[in-house]
Amino acid sequence: MSQRPVTIAFDVMGGDHGPLEIVRGAAQLTLDTPHIHALLVGDRALIDQALSQVKHHAERVAVHHAADFVGMHEKPNAALESKPDCSVMVAARLVREGEADAMVSAGNTGAGVLACARNFSLIPGVRRAALATVYPTAVGRGEKNDPFSLILDVGATVDASADDLVAFAIMGSAYARIISKNEHPTVALLSNGTEAQKGPARVVEANQKLQHIAGLRFIGNVEGVDIPKGTADVVVCDGFVGNVCLKMLEGVSETVIELARYAYKEKLLWRAGLAMLSSGIERIKEVTDWEQYGGAPILGFDRLFIKAHGRSKSRAITNAGKVAARAVSKDLANAIQGMLPKA
């Protein structure tokens, strides 16, 4: 049976590698998946030039011109005020108007979230949106044996209440179920101890409430050390803690790489040891390759926004489009709403 067509709006002007890489990714999407259409938003001349050089299926591509764009280092609020017709804003507007079903951007994260807030509506029962991200873990999960867990919020809502944390848990669970094909994902709260009474009042209260949510596989609290271990499929925290946590995990990874570089230069024996491990390291790199995941979703709005990494190349963009299309086809917003406690 043919699937219903899904249109994904791509903010072509965002990202470190320029429009060509985004256009390439979107073009590949039109070749891989007949039911996904790409709506490319950005400078029409640049898009035309890029598109004319790459294999694509023109029947599944449309272009919408947007003269401005928000730079990676611009302040989101000021940028959107001064450039109401910037590419990310136009893309969000087109999604709101029904010209596209979801949006993908590798540009300025704050501008993307703000563009969503100005154009989309929050799902009834959700007070705040959450930015989710995936993190490589020691164990795989779901039908695809994904070696990633989902962490949310990592920066959209700095100060979250107990009810917000409950909503984040439900949103994360629904997303993991649909995207990772993990039928019963485990959900945990990030705290400073595994006991239910540990942590600030909002975390303790959220823990109490989550125990009574039907259909949610809540396993209690986890500590920071449990994130890379993969103890839970979905880790829930507020945006402040999540962002600090994420940056620290990134810092640790970078330090490990630096140490390996140092060891490589320092001693022949260490170099030989690293060389022997290289195939294993390559394999780890393969299975934890974030590009296969495409990007991080902004959850809580009635429309989906996938925030691709700023340094995304075409493969990551293609995958971000596939993730967005899957979420649309499986009606993620409805799945979330169905699980939320009735007011």
Partner: peptide, 8 residues
Amino acid sequence: NSFQDLLR
């Protein structure tokens, strides 16, 4: 989309 492709 086919129509717009020609215009572009």
